[in-house]
Design a protein around this nucleic acid. Structure first.
Lengths: 114, 114
DNA sequence: CTGTCGTACTATGTCTGTCGTAGTATCTTT
DNA sequence: AAAGATACTACGACAGACATAGTACGACAG
């Protein structure tokens, strides 16, 4: 069975996370579930990969964190939410362009299965 | 200007090299020129990346090396040529399948530029 | 015959994203 | 009360890509 290797997806985990944060702020567990769902179960991000992406992207100014309770009522444990910044929006767009270019290049070296 | 980052292409340098070797045995400098040409000048593989890929792939049994003179007449400096093995062919095919899957997944997270 | 350019490598060490492993702690359900 | 889902943090290891540097041969110009 074909699996997605980390070497390939490397550099696009951030993009996937930002894609989700563009719609609304979210937090770790929720994002990982959405990635799995959006990829039709074909890709599941590792926990450590996800959380280290948060740290890195916050340091780079692509996302911002804040803590909030699960519901608006303040009940339950507070979670760390992330929202995308203006720089993050810009970065996301650049990664999309880069993806399109990369795809074009790589496909010159891919042979359709016979 | 959009550039291909190493994190994206990572894991597909090997595939590009194998694509070229599937046609005929070749050597470092020639392969790097072909990669540049086939990608319409959009991607230029770094020398160290190329040669370390050779070492790795030979160790993994995907390619075999032999030395030969530039022309059949034996004149000039001998070069290290590489040819793809059966395992290499297999590996190449798997990487093509993996690419197709990866592409499908990533594109769920890419927004068309407006 | 000397210097420069293109060719053809090798060596070494660094960087970065990913991931394995492990541990903590709260909340929900049984 | 125990189990399972949720929500993280810490630490270390790994591998591919790359920067830098150096070697060496051949061709060709001046």
């Amino acid at each position: 069975m074909v699996e997605i290797s980390s070497d390939v997806i490397r550099g696009y985990n951030d993009t996937m996370i930002l894609y989700i944060l563009r719609k609304a702020p979210s937090y770790g567990y929720e994002i990982s579930k959405q990635i799995k769902q959006l990829s039709d179960g074909k890709y599941v991000i590792k926990e450590t990969t996800l959380y280290s992406a948060f740290t890195r992207m916050e340091k780079n100014g692509y996302i911002e964190s804040f803590t909030a309770a699960p519901e608006a009522d303040g009940g339950g444990k507070r979670r760390t939410y992330y929202r995308i910044t203006g720089n993050g929006q810009q970065y996301y767009k650049e990664k999309c362009e880069e993806w399109n270019l990369t795809k074009e290049v790589v496909e010159h070296f891919i042979t359709a299965e016979e």
